[in-house]
Design a protein around this nucleic acid. Structure first.
Lengths: 203, 203, 203, 203
DNA sequence: AATGAATGAGTTTTCATTCAT
DNA sequence: TATGAATGAAAACTCATTCAT
């Protein structure tokens, strides 16, 4: 049993090694320009081993999505259980998303670049993305129940708008069109929460 | 000269025929999955002809971006010259973007799906996208100058947030995750302007 | 119209050029050991051109079967319309099959070697083989109707036996286990017709 | 020594287990489409183990031929020592071949499908096939010596014809083109012996 | 201008075989 | 003996692009 556990752990480690390498490789050249051999080389393993741990090149990308994104969604979900005000919850959610850029820029790079790819197949499979929206939506709904947020906004649409604002900022950073240093990240957090909560209008 | 003009017009028509077909083809299968012969077939011409009018498959996509997007940006720019309040200008800009979906769903589909692709090459070449951001940014700046918008928000970042909110809604429609009927489009317009101008907070 | 005809003829010629090369290539190394590049090289054309004229490597083999075999079946069918005795018809049919070896050894080599391959798919698609059996079967049936052949033999089974005897001789020649010179071919013809018509028993 | 003997017996059992599994696997998918892991899975062992008992995938097929075929040839050889008439010997030989289908359809399936494959290498190694022909040839020769069979037929060619007739019937059964129920097997036996001994001609 | 035959580099994937444990 | 992770060569197939007509 110890042997089995060790073996499984070793396998898991290998899998992770390849997955991390894939993130770096995809981030460098983009998914389509990236050959399976690039992943293997980046991971320091033989070509065929990638196929031991993943069905196909596509499956690798899907795993990147599922597992990397999953961590972020988990963090956002955790926020719900905290006894914060809706505004605080929204702020913390935005912070998590935006700071992921600081902590895992390659992961964000890949997620941002490839998330819209082959809309039909990949997106439907990766429910994690949907979970992120649902968590945001629940925060909005709670804010409306507690009369903190305006009643006239469809929560689902509001969640999409919040998510869109965040993703666009990440995109700006990924593409180097927006400055993304540590201070900028804090500014972005303040600005996006400011706009989303209080609006652009000065009143 | 009349002859030349006629020829040029005929050429322009052919070019347009191929470009429109490309939009439909890209919208159906995505840029990468779409072969040059698919474009030609959709246009009803031999596929060698695509190379008479465009340098490469990439150049076709770039033209789609430049020309289709250009129309939208032009419309947004036109708004600036109108004597509306900043809020009205923002509302109209959002309306233009969102209604483009109703009028040219295939174009939007392609723009949304492929805009993040090959960040290095394509994006830099297509400055039209940048122009859209600048137009939004100028609207925000004007709002701040006129003391209608809050002073503490970086205009550039605000423009990105506005754009991100809009793009995400379009994505939701494209992927069928958000309802996109005529009434939904109007609702989305009201909601996105509401959030961006007045915030989520009920005060 | 002349242009179209010429073009089609040119295409047909190219197709034939590749098909003939495939026969030579398959005959040399066997279907499985033969790469598509071997076919292209043998034909003196570029790699990809094979895929212009054939769906896949498998489709090439199928075409070899269908077209090469078709010629032989056509010849056997022609015999039926002649006013020969059943024995004569049988003799001529055997002669056609056996002499194909002399005239197109490579074709026979391929047919013999690969005919049993992937029984499910290929065989069922290539009806030409079935036609050969039917022609032989009709000859047997006519022989029985005319009271020349024995009544107690199921014609279908008899046709298979005749065909099996012929194929085995071809196999012996292909594999170099039976001598296959011109004189041997004549002997084989006489022997196989002798056994099939009059039996081994000396009476 | 007892230990060694036991070990060897256990080894032999394992070897047999893998070989039987290989027959089933080859019969199902054909030799080429069958991976080593398919054999191992069918045998219920790890696929590295196949390489403990066999040099290579090819060696497994060769062993199938040698050992399975060997049993059949042995049975045919045994017939020679019986004090039967040549016709009886021929009938019994045919019966053995045809009834093997009933008893070991998977074995026959593999032998029939793959026997013509890679003529150069495999065939030369598997002399068992040659032995079957020789046994048939000796039966014919004896029949000629005893003035029961016609003198004008080359015995070697006659043996090939007999074998071809039998193989074709097996092929028909394997491919499902000829009915292969118990009664059909008996009919086939009667028919093939009838044709080969007495001919198609009714006299 | 228009056609589509021809090219061939590039990429994924498969799988027999080896080898460390 | 038994396992299955690791290797990497091999090959089919795709498709953007060129070019002769």
């Amino acid at each position: 049993m110890a042997t089995v556990a060790t073996r499984t752990a070793a396998q898991e480690e290998r899998r992770r090694q390849i997955l991390d390498a894939a993130v770096r490789a995809f981030a460098k050249k983009g998914y389509h320009a990236c050959r399976v051999s690039d992943i293997a080389e980046e991971a320091g393993v033989a070509y065929g081993l990638v196929y031991h741990y993943f069905e196909s090149k596509d499956a690798v990308l899907e795993a990147v999505f599922r597992e990397m994104w999953g961590a972020m969604v988990g963090a956002i979900n955790a926020i719900e259980s905290l006894d914060d005000s809706p505004r605080q919850q929204l702020r913390k959610s935005c912070a998590i998303v935006l700071r992921t850029w600081r902590d895992y820029p390659d992961v964000v790079r890949v997620l941002v670049r490839e998330v819209a790819r082959s809309g039909e197949q990949l997106q439907r499979e990766v429910e994690e993305i949907a979970h992120a929206f649902e968590a945001l939506q629940r925060i909005v709904e709670r804010g409306q129940r507690e009369k903190v947020f305006r009643q006239d906004l469809p929560p689902r649409l509001a969640a999409w708008i919040v998510y869109g604002a965040l993703e666009e900022i990440l995109t700006g950073w990924v593409l180097g069109r927006l400055p993304g240093e540590d201070q900028d990240i804090k500014d972005a957090e303040r600005t996006v929460v400011g706009i989303l909560c209080d609006g652009l209008i000065d009143d």
